[in-house]
């Protein structure tokens, strides 16, 4: 694979606790190609969100990256200065969290949240930021009249779309999505995923998609990585992992989910 966007080698994340070191991520290796969707599945506590935060260097003490390397587009992420890091976040990598309600500031309008990201990073005028924001809203199918609404005036699905649009604002190369649709019902979930796939074709970004819903993962990801207690136990192309899971734990995850049987 020559066209790697993200390359993670031997990543180890420790938590300093009262009872000594707890290693949440125990040396994982993976890479994401350009335009690829890598799914990361595992139960809560397996370390998948810790990986997501570590990739953007958003992990906070007591978590520390003790070993390993993260390279994005040829650049060593762990060696970046705080100044470079600030610029790099959102413009190269952005993140969509599970709860859109909590990632939007309730006392700012939708436009103000766009403006914060766009103006801070590109230094354009407010008017230009507004034009860009309405363009982005149009992309995700929200009328631009909603720009001056507050988050509570939008439905859950719309809020998650807005978060997605903000993540897209600076055309990053990688978007990390941590359970982006878990709080939504299946119909809205499908609407949003369809939109993400369409936008991905248009802009060509890569996605690290974190969820515990394997069925959804199979529909959406190109490759799936299964995580158990801080280690990747199996990484395979989706179709293969679904048809022929190799690891015991993968098989157990599959059997633990009642799947809909039609006719």
């Amino acid at each position: 694979m020559t066209d790697k966007l993200l390359d993670v080698r031997g990543l180890k994340v420790d938590f300093l606790t009262a009872h000594g070191l707890f290693t949440a991520v125990k040396g994982v290796d993976f890479s994401i190609g350009r335009g690829e969707v890598l799914g990361l599945a595992g139960e809560s506590g397996s370390g998948k969100s810790t990986i997501a935060l570590a990739l953007m260097r958003l992990h906070r003490p007591p978590a520390i990256i003790s070993e390993g390397s993260i390279t994005l587009d040829g650049e060593d992420v762990l060696a970046m200065s705080p100044e470079r890091l600030r610029k790099w976040r959102w413009s190269s990598v952005s993140m969509v969290f599970q709860s859109a309600m909590n990632s939007l500031n309730p006392v700012l309008t939708i436009f103000e949240q766009f403006r914060d990201v766009i103006v801070r990073h590109t230094g354009v005028s407010t008017a230009e930021a507004r034009a860009r924001a309405s363009e982005l809203l149009a992309l995700i199918g929200i009328p631009q009249s909603r720009l001056d609404d507050y988050p509570h005036q939008l439905s859950g699905g719309m809020r998650q779309r807005v978060v997605l649009a903000i993540a897209l604002a600076l055309e990053p190369k990688l978007i990390i999505m941590d359970e982006p649709t878990t709080a939504l019902d299946v119909v809205v979930q499908r609407e949003i995923l369809q939109e993400i796939v369409e936008l991905k074709r248009k802009f060509g970004f890569s996605i690290l998609f974190i969820t515990h819903d394997l069925a959804l993962m199979g529909q959406f990801a190109d490759r799936i990585a299964i995580m158990l207690e801080g280690k990747l136990v199996e990484v395979a192309p989706s179709a293969e992992l679904i048809a022929n899971p190799q690891h015991d734990y993968t098989r157990r995850l599959w059997s633990s989910m009642p799947l809909l049987t039609r006719d």
Binding site: Q194, V197, L214, A215, Q219, R262
Partner: peptide, 25 residues
Amino acid sequence: LLLSAVPDPKVKLDGTGARSFASEA
């Protein structure tokens, strides 16, 4: 609509018809 939106791991989303699904919904 509900049944068609339940994730089926065998069917890969390709992004075509995103708008038509949304407007049908």
